[in-house]
Lab assay of single mutants.
Amino acid sequence: PAHPYDRLKTTSTDPVSDIDVTRREAYLSSEEFKEKFGMTKEAFYKLPKWKQNKFKMAVQLF
């Protein structure tokens, strides 16, 4: 299930529990994912792991 970005980011005051914290981005809706990352999930997962992590750090999901 998708969760709002505000509850997934590492600085959230009301974090979602029971998620894989190493894959926070996977819980974003497709729309919100595209808004935050500027690309689709499919394109994101084709990137090298280090680049994925760099993007995730930039949007507080790492």
Rank of each mutant, 00 (worst) to 15 (best):
S30T: 15
K34N: 14
Q52P: 01
K34G: 10
Y45S: 09
E32V: 11
A43Y: 09
E25V: 08
P15Q: 04
R23M: 10
V59A: 09
D14Y: 11
T13P: 06
D6A: 00
D6L: 00
R23V: 04
P15F: 04
K41T: 05
L61N: 06
K34L: 14
R23Q: 11
V59R: 03
Q60V: 05
E25C: 03
E25S: 04
T13I: 11
F44L: 01
V16S: 02
A26V: 11
E35T: 10
K56Q: 02
S17K: 14
H3G: 04
F37G: 00
T11I: 02
N53Y: 08
M39Q: 03
P15W: 00
L61F: 03
Q60H: 15
K56N: 02
F44Q: 00
W50A: 08
R24E: 01
G38S: 09
A43N: 12
T10L: 12
V59Y: 08
K56F: 07
F33W: 01
Y27E: 09
E25I: 06
F33N: 00
Y5R: 01
Q60S: 08
F55H: 14
V21T: 10
W50M: 05
P1C: 15
F62S: 14
M39T: 03
Y27L: 02
S29Y: 03
D20E: 11
D14S: 07
L8S: 02
L28H: 03
L47C: 03
F44A: 01
Q60I: 09
T10N: 13
N53K: 11
F33C: 02
N53L: 12
R7M: 09
A2C: 15
W50S: 04
F37D: 00
T40K: 07
K46Q: 12
F33M: 01
E25L: 04
T13G: 06
S29N: 10
P48S: 02
E25A: 02
T10C: 14
W50R: 05
K9A: 07
W50E: 10
S17F: 14
M57I: 13
W50Q: 03
F62W: 15
G38A: 07
T13R: 08
N53S: 08
E42N: 15
T11C: 15
M57R: 14
A43E: 15
G38I: 02
F33L: 01
S29K: 04
F33D: 01
T10P: 02
K56T: 01
M39V: 04
I19R: 02
E35C: 10
Y27V: 03
L28F: 13
K46E: 11
D14L: 06
L8T: 03
R24G: 04
T11P: 06
I19V: 05
F37H: 01
L61K: 04
D20Y: 01
P1A: 11
A26C: 11
K54T: 09
F62D: 14
V59W: 08
P4I: 04
P15V: 05
S17C: 14
L47K: 01
V59K: 03
L28I: 04
K54H: 13
K9Y: 11
T10S: 04
I19W: 05
P48A: 06
T40N: 10
F37I: 05
R7G: 10
Q60G: 12
M57S: 07
P48D: 06
E32H: 04
T22W: 06
S17H: 14
T11K: 01
Q60Y: 15
F55Q: 06
M39I: 05
P1V: 14
K46G: 14
P4F: 03
D18T: 06
K34E: 15
F44D: 00
W50T: 05
L28T: 01
H3V: 12
T13F: 06
E32M: 08
D6F: 01
D18V: 05
T22G: 04
A2Y: 15
S29E: 03
K41R: 10
V59C: 08
